[in-house]
Design a protein around this nucleic acid. Structure first.
Length: 590
RNA sequence: GCACUCGUAGUCUAAUGGAUAGAACGGAGGCCUCCGACGCCUUUAAUGCAGGUUCGAUUCCUGCCGGGUGCACCA
C-alpha cells in the first residue's frame, strides 16, 4: 500500500506537470508550520532558477492547475513560494480504513527481502552482565525487530566471548581450589560428571579473582596461558570443564536476557569458529594479503583517500596466537558460509569504530564477503550517570545489570503502590511494575540517537509525565480501558465505521496515524529506533488531545461513536505494534 | 602529536539545506458533578565563537574554543 505522502506527492506532481513544470518538483513533505497547513511543497522555490521565474508565480500556476482535487481540501500559494496544503478529510478517512484492514497497516514489503545478521549482546561467559551490555542488547533487539517488521529475514546472534585466556584463567583458579577434580587427571578416560563442580555465583567470583592474581603473579599467568593452550588443543578434561562453564553461564545469561525481553536466534561464540582459523589464515597468506610485520601477521587496509592513519589489520599475534580480529573475521567467514547474509550489522560501543573499519576492509580485501555484502557498524554512545560520567555504582564500581533492573523495578513498584486511588492488588502491581520498568529503561535509551552518549536518570525515565515509556503505556492503558468498557456494553469495533474527521484534534490524530508507514520505513532505512519513539510520543499526545475534547462513550450519535471507537482501536494497535518493535509491551492497566 | 566525534532553553533532547529551531523536565498560571487529572490548556527560555558557500545554514566548508574517544600484539 502506498504511503500517504506518496499519494499526495503524486497528486502534486500531476499538477506541476499540468502547469508545464517538472513533475519531480512536486515532492510533498509534512508541514513545518502546523498552524498554517498540514503538508507543504517547496517545489516552486526549487524550480525558480530552472525556469527563471518567480517562485510565487510558479506556485500560483500549480494551484490553478490543481483545480478541484479529491485529495486536497485546501491548497494555497504563500510567499515566498510555499504551497500550503490541507487534506480532504474523506480522503484521509479512506486511507485509514485501508490501513486498518491491511497487513502491517499497509507497510510495503520489500521485493527482495534481505538476509541480515545482527551481531549484538556480546557478553563474556562466566562474567555477569553489567550496564555496559545494556545498550547493545536494547538497541540490537530493536534494530532486529524493526528490520524483521520491515519484511527482512533477520538473524540475531549474541556472539559470546567464550574462548581464550579468560577461560584458561577460570580453569587455573578451579585447579588451585580443587586440584583433585577428575578433570585434572591426565590419564582419566571415563565419563565426566554431568553436574558442574561450581554454581553461577561461584563462577562469577572465580573469574575476577583469577584475573587479579594473574596480573600480580607471573607464574600464575603462565599457568593460565598453559591451561588456555591445553583447552584449545583439545585436552579432554579441559574441554569437559569448559562445557560446564558454558552450560552454567549460558543458562544464567538466558535468564537475564529474558528479563530484558531480548531473544537471540543464535548463541554462537568465538569458540565456534576456532577450528576455521588455520584455513582462513592460510588463504590470506596464499592470496598474498597477509604478511609478517614486527613478528605479527597483518593485512594492510590503508586506502588512498584516508585522512587518518589506518593501521594494518592484525590477523595473528607475534606469538602466533589468534586475537579479537581473528575470531571476528572467522565469524564473518562462517556467517557467509552458513547464512550468506546480504548485510551484517554490528551493534557495538562506538569506541570500536576504527577497529571495525579495519576488520571490514580486511574482510573485503581478502574476499571473505561478496563485493555487495554490506558490513555496517552501528556504534552506540556511553550510558552516563547523572554527573555526566560513565554510569557507576555509588561505590564507583561496575554495576551489575541485575542490580540496575532491581532498582528500577523497585522504584516502579513504589510508584504504583503509592498511587492515591490505587485499585491494583499487590501481586499484580509487582508484575506490572516489571513491565513498566522495562519500558522506562528501554524507552529512555532508545529515544536518544544511538550514537550519542546519554544520561541514565531513573527518576526521569520512570516518571509517567513527559516523554517516557510509562507515559506511553499509561496512554495505551487508558485506551484499553475505554475500549473495554465499550465492549462490555456489546459494542462492535469495525474499521469500516471510521468517519471523516470533524474536529481539528481528530484530524490531527488521523494524519499522525497515516504517517505510520513512512515513519517505519525511515526507522528501518536509517536503523534509527529513536524515530519510532518520537513517533509514538507524538501519536500518544495527539490521542490525548483528542481524548480530552471528545466524550466518546457518552456520544449519542451512533455513527460518530463507532467511528471514534474504530479510530481508538487503530491508534491502540499502531502504538502496541510500535512498542513491540522497540522491545517492550503494555499492561492492560497500570 | 595525528585523527574521529559531539557542543541546541536552567536541565534533558529533536530537526532529508527551507517559513516563527520542535518537545520534555523545571519555573509561573488555569481546567475534574463527565470515558483513567500518571491527563489537558496557557506562559517562560536555546543553535559555543568567528568567518565562508547559498535566495535561504542547527545542518555544508575553514579556523578557534570546549567536552568525549581512538591511534597494531586487550576485547
Amino acid at each position: 500500500m502506498e504511503k500517504l505522502l506518496d499519494l499526495v506527492s503524486e497528486e502534486m506532481k500531476q499538477a506541476f506537470e499540468a502547469a508545464g513544470y517538472d513533475g519531480g518538483l512536486g515532492k510533498v513533505t509534512p508541514s513545518n508550520r502546523p498552524d498554517l497547513c498540514e503538508y507543504q511543497c517547496n517545489g516552486a522555490m526549487a524550480g525558480a532558477k530552472q525556469y527563471k521565474k518567480a517562485p510565487m508565480a510558479i506556485a500560483q500556476d500549480v494551484v490553478n492547475a490543481l483545480g478541484e482535487s479529491k485529495v486536497f481540501a485546501e491548497a494555497g500559494a504563500v510567499n515566498p513560494g510555499f504551497l500550503n496544503l490541507k487534506l480532504n478529510p474523506a480522503f484521509v478517512r479512506n486511507y485509514l480504513e485501508r490501513m486498518a484492514q491491511a497487513e502491517k497497516f499497509g507497510l510495503e514489503m520489500p521485493e527482495h527481502p534481505k538476509k541480515i545478521v545482527i551481531d549484538y549482546g556480546g557478553p563474556n561467559v562466566a562474567k555477569p552482565l553489567h550496564v555496559g551490555h545494556l545498550r547493545s542488547a536494547i538497541i540490537g533487539e530493536s534494530v532486529k525487530r524493526i528490520a524483521r517488521y520491515a519484511g527482512h529475514e533477520v538473524t540475531g546472534d549474541i556472539h559470546l566471548g567464550d574462548w581464550g585466556l579468560q577461560m584458561g584463567l577460570i580453569i587455573t583458579e578451579l585447579r588451585e581450589r580443587q586440584p583433585d577434580l577428575l578433570y585434572f587427571e591426565d590419564n582419566y578416560e571415563g565419563e565426566y560428571p554431568a553436574e558442574a563442580p561450581f554454581t553461577i555465583s561461584e563462577l562469577e567470583e572465580i573469574y575476577p579473582t583469577a584475573s587479579a592474581k594473574s596480573k600480580e603473579d607471573a607464574a600464575y599467568k603462565e599457568k593460565a596461558m598453559d591451561a588456555t593452550f591445553k583447552l584449545q588443543s583439545g585436552v579432554r578434561g579441559y574441554r569437559a570443564l569448559w562445557k560446564h562453564i558454558m552450560d552454567v553461564s549460558v543458562a544464567d545469561l538466558k535468564k537475564n536476557y529474558k528479563n530484558l525481553n531480548v531473544e537471540f536466534d543464535l548463541w554462537k561464540g568465538e569458540s565456534d569458529v576456532h577450528d576455521l582459523i588455520p584455513a582462513m589464515v592460510e588463504e590470506m597468506k596464499k592470496g598474498g594479503y597477509a604478511y609478517l610485520s614486527e613478528g605479527a601477521l597483518v593485512v594492510d587496509v590503508k586506502e588512498e583517500t584516508d585522512t587518518k592513519e589506518v593501521p594494518p589489520c592484525m590477523i595473528l599475534k607475534s606469538d602466533g596466537a589468534s586475537l579479537y580480529n581473528t575470531t571476528d573475521l572467522a565469524t564473518i567467514m562462517d556467517r557467509m558460509d552458513k547464512i550468506n547474509p546480504d548485510e551484517i550489522i554490528y551493534v557495538v560501543d562506538k569506541r570500536q569504530e576504527l577497529y571495525f573499519e579495519q576488520v571490514f576492509r580486511c574482510a573485503r580485501k581478502t574476499k571473505l564477503v561478496r563485493p555487495e555484502t554490506e558490513l555496517k557498524f552501528l556504534g552506540f554512545g556511553t550510558m552516563n550517570g547523572k554527573d555526566g560520567k560513565p554510569f557507576k555504582t555509588r561505590e564507583g564500581g561496575v554495576m551489575r545489570l541485575e542490580s540496575l533492573l532491581e532498582e528500577i523495578n523497585g522504584e516502579m513498584y513504589r510508584k504504583i503502590m503509592s498511587q492515591e486511588n490505587r485499585t491494583m492488588p499487590e501481586g499484580e502491581a509487582g508484575e506490572t511494575a516489571k513491565i513498566v520498568a522495562l519500558s522506562a529503561v528501554k524507552y529512555g535509551d532508545l529515544s536518544n540517537q544511538a550514537s550519542k552518549d546519554y544520561i541514565f536518570d531513573i527518576d526521569r525515565f520512570t516518571s509517567s509525565e513527559g516523554d517516557t515509556g510509562p507515559y506511553i503505556l499509561y496512554t495505551i492503558a487508558r485506551m484499553k480501558s475505554i475500549l473495554g468498557k465499550y465492549a462490555e456494553t456489546g459494542g462492535k469495533t469495525d474499521a469500516a465505521a471510521l468517519q471523516p474527521a470533524s474536529g481539528a484534534s481528530e484530524k490531527d490524530l488521523m494524519l499522525q496515524l497515516a504517517g505510520f508507514n513512512a515513519m517505519m520505513e525511515g526507522a528501518y532505512a536509517e536503523t534509527a529506533p529513536h524515530k519510532v519513539c518520537s513517533y509514538i510520543y507524538d501519536l500518544a499526545n495527539a490521542f490525548n488531545r483528542f481524548y480530552h475534547e471528545t466524550k466518546i462513550l457518552t456520544e449519542e450519535d451512533r455513527t460518530k461513536k463507532e467511528g471514534w471507537i474504530a479510530l481508538l482501536a487503530l491508534t491502540r494497535d499502531v502504538l502496541e505494534t510500535c512498542i513491540g518493535v522497540l522491545g517492550f509491551s503494555a499492561p492492560d492497566r497500570m
